[in-house]
Design a protein around this nucleic acid. Structure first.
Length: 482
DNA sequence: AAATGGTTCAACCGCAATCAG
DNA sequence: CCTGATTGCGGTTGAACCATT
């Protein structure tokens, strides 16, 4: 037996285009009463329409938060990127363009983007470049398949994670640390200063106004993390063996290629002489607080988005306690960017790349809505041991809603593949390219771990401080170049 | 000016998932 | 757990519009 019609066929239900009067009735009713049961709405609102038709009209057209008009270039790129990951899951895609409806995106894809890709020789279904494809224009380079495979791990993982978790709202909160001294000598300040010193303003205007100190403190702290690949550790040499230690946990992320266990990661960091000490209770707390989310994200990245890719890298998200620096408000990448004192190095990297001028992707340090502060540094670590970069993320308020995900998304445009290729436009970027791509360039991988670093720990603080103060043969001082 | 063909996009259809009793 | 109602979603349609002949 077939399904019952949503509306009583015996009633004279109007179909077809809506009149302005009908729109007015619907809007007036919903604004006053909310939509309630869609089935009952037409009668209450005095509309000779089926409830389903009313719902569609409201959600696709009359809803006040809908942005109409032409799609921007950034929106185009985002839709294409998301489509490469999510396919025809228009609702999931629309979730990343909050002011656009799934119907609108679907129509736009079918009438514009699909054709445009086809004209460029890109299969709109597989997103792979066909052999007979036309030469690509520079403005569309970032979307070709080879570069899609390098689409930032965050982007892919979070896109999928959001699609999957959007209804669950089950993300677990970031951990918070005990209060620590908030002084200008706080170790994480070195990270801040290094970026302020190393990047300079010339790359920043694209991301908004950046306030600078009148006499910025220059310190001899290079802007890049040293490359431990040239300082081999036992851990790095025994990578596979070490990875195998945790693969006895069924379904765990440790079974994913390239994944690290927290203890191994910490061991690696320690072995390579680069940081740090993690308070054991904090480590335990972090493990229980974050591992489910990160594991799921990593697994999804592996299983669903990059099945064909040999993932050998790991992303580590280091959560630092606030250094007590002045913070901007959190940035909403979909809306207005509030200028901050510091900008994400990752965001800064995008600036000179004409294809990645995501003005909305700036990620100044964030202050959470509850007033506390946590800063996140996102490292991508290769098994060979090279650090790619770190980015500074505003933190969410940790309440598990989509605000957290959105804030994490501010790292979406991590490092575009084009960045690693020829044609870098600034000396600074060239230097960073040399530094980073020397060991094979970026790799894909999900967010594997979230690791809290305890700045209140004296040992770690001293270590980090010495790291910043001692020039290293592995470090590149961008400040000198600029 | 009329005919024709192509494009756009709001709206519809039907299936699947979810909810409620 | 079952069943029917409701909601969400993606594919498709067709009227309106536009460009070309």
């Amino acid at each position: 037996m077939g399904r019952a019609p949503c509306c009583d066929e015996r009633m004279s239900v109007k179909k077809g285009p809506w009149t302005p009067e009908e729109d007015q009735k619907l809007v007036a009713y919903i604004q006053e009463h909310g939509h309630g049961s869609w089935r009952e709405l037409p009668e209450k609102a005095g509309l000779a329409r089926c409830g389903k038709s009313c719902r569609l009209r409201w959600t696709n057209y009359l809803r006040p938060d809908i942005k109409r008009g032409r799609f921007s270039h950034e929106e185009d790129q985002k839709i294409i990127q998301l489509h490469a990951i999510l396919g025809n899951r228009w609702s999931a895609i629309a979730g990343h363009l909050p002011q656009r409806t799934d119907n609108e995106i679907k129509n736009y894809w079918n009438t514009h983007l699909k054709k445009r890709l086809a004209q460029m020789g890109i299969d709109p279904i597989t997103h792979k470049t066909s052999s007979s494809g036309l030469a690509l224009t520079s403005s569309w380079r970032p979307i070709v398949s080879t570069q899609l495979t390098h689409m930032t791990q965050w982007d892919c993982a979070l896109a999928e994670a959001e699609a999957r978790l959007s209804k669950k709202s089950s993300m677990k909160p970031f951990i918070r640390f005990p209060e620590a001294a908030q002084s200008s000598a706080h170790p994480s300040t070195y990270f801040m200063r290094s970026w302020k010193t190393g990047i300079e303003d010339k790359h920043r205007p694209k991301f908004g106004i950046v306030k600078r100190e009148s006499s910025p403190v220059r310190i001899d702290c290079p802007s890049l993390v040293p490359n431990p690949a040239r300082r081999p550790s036992n851990l790095l040499q025994n990578w596979d063996t070490i990875l195998g230690l945790r693969t006895d946990q069924p379904g765990s992320l440790w079974q994913q290629p390239g994944a690290w266990s927290m203890s191994h990661t910490l061991k690696q960091i320690a072995t390579s002489g680069r940081s740090h000490h993690l308070d054991e209770s904090a480590a335990s707390q972090a493990r229980s607080s974050t591992i489910d989310m990160s594991g799921e994200v990593a697994s999804m990245a592996d299983d669903m988005m990059f099945p064909q890719i040999d993932r050998t890298g790991s992303n580590l998200l280091f959560v630092f306690e606030s250094a007590g620096a002045t913070r901007s408000d959190s940035v909403d990448r979909y809306g207005t960017t509030t200028p901050g004192d510091y900008f994400s190095p990752t965001s800064t990297l995008h600036g000179p790349d004409p294809d990645f001028t995501h003005s909305e992707s700036g990620s100044p340090c964030g202050s959470s809505t509850d007033g506390s502060t946590l800063d996140c540094f996102d490292f991508t670590v290769q098994p060979e041991g090279s650090f790619h970069s770190f980015s500074l993320l505003p933190n969410g308020d940790g309440d598990g809603d989509d605000g957290d995900a959105r804030l994490q998304e501010s790292s979406l445009y991590d490092i575009p593949d084009t960045f690693w290729q020829a044609g870098q436009e600034t000396e600074a970027l060239q230097l960073q390219t040399v530094e980073i791509s020397d060991d094979g360039g970026p790799d894909s991988g999900g967010l594997d771990l979230i690791i809290p670093l305890d700045f209140s720990n004296a040992e770690f603080s001293q270590h980090l401080e010495s790291l910043c103060q001692e020039p290293s043969e592995y470090q590149t001082d961008i400040g000198e170049v600029l």
